[in-house]
Amino acid sequence: MNAIKNLNKTTRNNFLTYGAVVLAYAVVQLLMGSLSSSLKGMLVPICAYVVMALSLNLTVGVLGELSLGHAGFMSVGAFSGVTAAMALQELIPFAPLRLTVSMLIGAVFAGIAGFLIGIPVLRLNGDYLAIVTLAFGEIIKSIINNLYLGLDGKGLHFSLLTDRTALDEDGLLIIGGPMGIGGIQRLSTFTAGFVLVMLSLFIIFNLVNSRTGRAIMAVRDNSIAAESIGINITKYKLIAFVTSAALAGAAGTLFAMNYTTIVANKFDFNASILILVFVVLGGLGNMFGSIVAAAALTILPEALREFDDYRMLVYAIVLILVMLATNNPAIQGFFARLRGARKGAAEQ
């Protein structure tokens, strides 16, 4: 017990977060038999959304730039990852390894997209940056919606707008424009999701608590001051942005491999907003908060099923009330006093 107390506060919080995730995984595994099938079906999406929230928190909370197109990176990851999984079907017969390789490929492609988008985007700031990320999200959606990609003996073929892939007889059309990808093998498992969540946490915590992470936060707090002490703003912004995009790509692959079909319209502006809601409700820069918010808000519409038609209305009202309550000075003061009292008691 003493050993835990002696750790510094950040390390202790990080270990508590890892612990909470492991505990949640263990509890769910124990209860697996008694879970309803609809809840069981949500386990992988919850993990994917948790990773999305964590990665967006890196951009919004740690880097301090509002991104409204995060689902675009998820989309890039989903489509490249699933394509890889289908192309590697014979080369890597062992499913978990194929899933891992696919997620890695999804992460790499999303990371490249993040790098290409990040160079122009990160020159802007504030609301202008937000609108450009929104624009890129929509562009990614439009392009994937019109992309045709097939595989045959000669290799990969692709075309835009219309199907001009001209595949051989034994060829397979993987991405079919607006139809998306069909016939996906559902490789994703809850355990894979859990591993990805832990890995994301590990990457983010280690990034944030490093020299690089401190530089990123310095850019967030005051970019002019950071620049004046020799921090290369563009470089650190890009590091955060690309890491965030790559994690989103891996989450996208995980998400897509949980369904038999996937279409680009699923990753639209509303999906980006949904993830942003997780991040803001969980608290900016607070990774544990992101995990809880993502899990709770993914389950909430399901839990509200008894309200039937009213459930999205209730969801909206809950969202507004939570935002009003958490920003109410009286309630904030109450929690501050509570925290103060606890600290006082600990010191005595």
Binding site: V280, L313, Y315, A316, N327
Partner: peptide, 24 residues
């Protein structure tokens, strides 16, 4: 009520209002 809050908090509230209007 959010006049003093961060712009992100207001943004999320606006999104909540948008969901509310659509679902109503």
């Amino acid at each position: 009520p959010l006049r003093q809050a961060t712009s992100l908090a207001v943004l999320i509230t606006a999104i909540g209002v948008s969901y509310f209007l659509q679902n109503s």
